[in-house]
Design a protein around this nucleic acid. Sequence first.
DNA 1: TCAAAAGTGTTAGCTGTACACCCATGG
DNA 2: CCATGGGTGTACAGCTAACACTTTTGA
Lengths: 270, 270
Amino acid sequence: MGFGNVSERRMQPPQIGVSVVVLALGPDEHDGTPGTLWMPLVKRVREPFLGRWALPGGSLISGKSLEQAAYEALSSTTDLRPQYLEQLYAFGDPKRSSSGLPMVSIAYWALVGGVESVDFTTTTNVQWFSEKHLPELAFDHRRIVDFALTRLRHNVAYPRVASRLIGERFTLAQLHRVFEAVTGSEIDVANFRRKMLASGQLEETGDKIREGRQRPAMVYRYRMQEHHDADALHGWTQEELRTLEDAAEASEDANAAIVPLMPWANPITR
Amino acid sequence: MGFGNVSERRMQPPQIGVSVVVLALGPDEHDGTPGTLWMPLVKRVREPFLGRWALPGGSLISGKSLEQAAYEALSSTTDLRPQYLEQLYAFGDPKRSSSGLPMVSIAYWALVGGVESVDFTTTTNVQWFSEKHLPELAFDHRRIVDFALTRLRHNVAYPRVASRLIGERFTLAQLHRVFEAVTGSEIDVANFRRKMLASGQLEETGDKIREGRQRPAMVYRYRMQEHHDADALHGWTQEELRTLEDAAEASEDANAAIVPLMPWANPITR
DNA sequence: TCAAAAGTGTTAGCTGTACACCCATGG
DNA sequence: CCATGGGTGTACAGCTAACACTTTTGA
């Protein structure tokens, strides 16, 4: 049972899928300093857009939540546990597939990493690309990527976001580099330090680390604040709460509850 | 050909629908002053949740964009042109329908109005409810409503949002009342005036209007800034751009292009 | 001429930004 | 002892919040 022709396909009820923009901090392509965002793409093995690079994703099948589907799309390309996963937007223009197949795609963005810990291995069907040198993508995935990058730039100031990119322990200088890399703008180091420390979100580990040959820097860690029970209040999932906050103004920062991500996730097999 | 039993339905591919939270500013229920948000709900005529109130919405069928589907859900309950329409969130937990029918719902929020112009007529299947006295809703629609209200509260400071609630021409006092009503907090009138005027977004009409028996107030109007051609730049729809901005911090306000809403909308028949 | 709402001025305190400066370390 | 990055002090500009004040109107 093959597909019908284009106009027949247009009459089908739309299919739902998820697409995930997975972002990790990796080395710059010229100097090796970490300061560029990388994302894995998969090569399509079917029409339409056979052979093109596309975002990891999959169809939504019964009994699974959207987050689960996104999580699985992610684990099919990376064996890392996502450090952050949030819904971006639902794309549903019937013209978007440009092949007549009506399709609604719910886009997610995820952060993986820990600066050192990401494995940028290339396989036949999965390859990591620098944000700055993306190939042509299938469907409207390029727009989804831009959407995700914009969101990240706007949200990197939230500790829960930045911390998922950089990893558990870090110096203020490292954190500063991440901010400059992600936002693409220069930030005064002195003021950055004070702002971060004043936020009360950072906690000294007591350790020091020397990166170059100079004075060693204090190692910090994000202080995970205790669970507010906000979800019990309104029945919202953490992910939904984050999206709510994304819509918030800057004023109320990070009074969100942080709980272990993906409470339903199975133990990872790696 | 009826439905199978619950476990059979669970195996179906999920259905996609849209739900719309339509908000308008209406009179307070005690004093008649405009200061309460109202929304239309429809009574369900089918299982599940037969007889319960639910958000206007519908199934997504082929060839229609999500926005079109949302627009039509809106026009089925209100013959007003939506002044604002924006995607909220995609809800997709398979447990959400509590009846075994897998369902993904893409929620939109819309503003209609112009203070005087909304017709709060009740019909058999459609009734307007005050935000403060909502009945029990079908599905997880209560959460969607809360989601929309939170979004509105966070975004009312954006002129394009507030203006769609209040109507074309207004005094600063009226605008001030809207802000206080929506945010639920007291705002110093003097500072509010200055902030609004300093924003450069307001424009005198030259008219004055007297609401009580006192000194008449200047009538203002929002200055619609010219079209940035941002959509041509990135291929984003206006609606997608707004959602992007929602994720933005307060700093960059309203450099968004404003174009006539719903360019594909047919002339209204009223 | 008085009450009530429209509209203006003034100040204290907070925050962001710029930039000068001191400190610790290995070579 | 010096170059380098880590880390601190300070001063100014601009914004916000609070509230006292003046103006305009109809009754």
